[in-house]
Amino acid sequence: MAFDIDDATEPAAVTMEWLVLGAAYFLLILFLIGVFDLFLSLYGLLVTGNFTDPNAVVELLDSVLLLLIIVEVHRTLLAYAKGKPVLRIVVSAAIIAIARRAINFRLEDYDTGQETVLAALAIAVLVLALAFGYYLLDGVEVPDRPEL
């Protein structure tokens, strides 16, 4: 009887598929909790009258972007489980994450002006690089590379 590598790796592959699906359902639960929390936060802002406070609105927007990141990671897991391309989804999740960081950018988080400028430039470079990468991925169809 010869050793067949496919037979030996099959249980690990099946287990990984189930774990990926489990993680996808876990993210779905986190998303539902996040949406509920978002509505509670919005209600709290409306009741207290703080809906005009820019910091409170940015915190609310931060929650929305975090929920979008959860959605993108969920989409990535589902696409991976189905054997579909994931690269565009991952890049779009990264764009949302960097946008979230840019929106939460605070000058007081840095000790010196040089650190502040360096952090702002780093965020700008990341946004531009990811946007350019997404543009390239969106315009390219490679028949032999389904992951693109």
Rank of each mutant, 00 (worst) to 15 (best):
I96D: 00
T76I: 10
N50T: 15
L136W: 09
A13E: 15
G49D: 02
A122Q: 13
M16K: 11
A97W: 00
I103V: 15
G44C: 04
L19P: 01
L21V: 01
F51C: 03
R88F: 06
T9R: 13
Q114L: 12
D6R: 14
A131E: 04
F39H: 04
L60A: 01
S92V: 11
A94V: 04
L19I: 10
S41F: 12
L148D: 07
A13G: 06
G83T: 05
L77E: 05
T116E: 08
L30S: 09
L107M: 14
M16H: 08
A119G: 00
L148F: 15
L66N: 14
I96S: 08
F26L: 15
V73Y: 07
D62Q: 14
V35S: 06
D4W: 04
A102N: 02
L42M: 10
A13D: 11
V20T: 10
R106I: 05
R75H: 13
I70A: 01
L27G: 00
D138P: 05
S92K: 10
E10A: 15
F26A: 15
A97F: 06
G133P: 02
L136Y: 09
V127C: 08
F105V: 00
L38A: 10
F39N: 05
G113L: 04
V125A: 14
W18P: 00
N55V: 12
A8L: 09
R145I: 14
S63P: 02
G34M: 04
Y80F: 14
I69P: 02
E10C: 06
P11F: 01
G83C: 01
L78Y: 07
S41R: 14
F26Q: 06
I29Y: 08
L42R: 07
E72Y: 09
F26I: 10
L130V: 03
D144G: 07
Y43N: 11
S92T: 13
A93I: 05
L45A: 07
I96F: 05
P146S: 05
F3T: 11
H74L: 13
